[in-house]
């Protein structure tokens, strides 16, 4: 990947906590400018530690992080001013007002006051009406919005969203996705960790899977789904079958108990060339030859969640 396209580079990053727990193990990762990157992994996989090291909250044991070419330790000012962080926990000064706390964040990141920008951010997150409310009076979802507003207050180039959908309702989640897409359209790079695979599937350009502190894969979302995903063709039969004819033994078929439904599992065409025996045309021809008539058919692709579960369940 060309250096100009890379906005964040993580090189041979490891983190071992004082108790001996290896949270990150030789992580190498390049994030492209302007993409939405979803980092998936089970609890304790190292997602939050990785974000913590990049943002300066956790000391790395070894390795380095470059933010737009700036080392996040020796050039921490240039590196950190490009980053906005929305943490997983709802942490805030409970008695501050929304406007004050968001303005404070902007100042803390070294930016001069800009009430117009703060107003834009608050309006985009439906917080404008709440600007004079104290944080303690807000609901969990509203507090989550405030944390996003704080992270956006200094106009970062990279936005980290650590479990942004934790504890928020469907409406807010959809609103947040719209905000995130809007940010991406304006050139902001988004890195999110999430337990909601649906979120990654919906929004991400690329997916990274981390487990046990190791980055298992980084792949374009569509490539990942076509490489590792499977499809199922469901055929509804005109008459029930009691057993499958021998001529169909070459196909990965399963017959339902009532004998009316045949499921055919196959790889998508990217990883399964169409000239192999296991393809739909050959199956349909074999069914016709065996005088099995079809009344209906349907296909279903495995979701990112299915792929994720199969990945994290694999033994190292």
């Amino acid at each position: 990947m060309s250096k100009a396209r890379v906005i964040l580079s993580v090189e041979q990053l490891s983190k071992q906590y004082s108790g001996g727990f290896q949270a990150l193990d030789d992580i190498n990762l390049d994030i492209r400018r302007g993409e939405i990157f979803a980092l998936l992994g089970p609890n304790g996989a190292g997602k939050t530690t990785l974000i913590g090291v990049i943002c300066g909250l956790v000391n790395a044991s070894s390795g380095r992080v470059l933010v737009d070419g700036h080392d996040n330790i020796s050039e921490f000012r240039q590196a950190r001013q490009r980053i906005g962080l929305v943490p997983q926990e709802l942490t805030s000064e409970a008695f501050s007002k929304v406007w004050d706390t968001v303005s404070f964040s902007r100042g803390l990141f070294g930016k001069p006051p800009n009430p117009e920008h703060i107003e834009r951010v608050l309006r985009s997150l439906s917080l404008w009406e709440k600007r004079n409310n104290r944080l303690i009076t807000l609901s969990g979802g509203m507090k989550r919005r405030v944390l996003i507003a704080k992270a956006l207050s200094h106009e970062p180039d990279i936005l980290f969203l650590d479990e942004p959908s934790a504890g928020v309702d469907v409406e807010l989640r959809r609103d947040m996705w719209a905000v995130v897409r809007g940010l991406r359209d304006r050139g902001v790079t988004i890195i999110l960790t999430t337990h909601y695979i649906e979120e990654a599937e919906e929004m991400a350009d690329r997916i990274g899977v981390i487990r046990g502190g190791k980055l298992m894969l980084v792949e374009d979302k569509h490539t990942l789904m076509s490489k590792l995903g499977t499809k199922v063709l469901t055929l509804r039969l005109m008459a029930p079958l009691t057993t499958l004819p021998e001529s169909l033994n070459d196909f990965d078929l399963s017959l339902s108990e009532d004998g009316f439904t045949l499921d055919y599992g196959y790889r998508s065409t990217v990883s399964q060339p169409s000239d192999t025996p296991n393809n739909i045309a050959a199956l349909l021809a074999a069914l016709a030859e065996a005088d099995i008539e079809i009344s209906d058919m349907d296909t279903r692709q495995s979701s990112l969640e299915d792929i994720f579960i199969s990945l994290v369940k694999e033994q190292p």
Partner: peptide
């Protein structure tokens, strides 16, 4: 205590 220290630690401030 509240966790909001994350903001200070991640800010471009010495």
């Amino acid at each position: 205590f509240s966790g909001s220290i994350y903001e200070v630690l991640s800010a471009p401030i010495s």
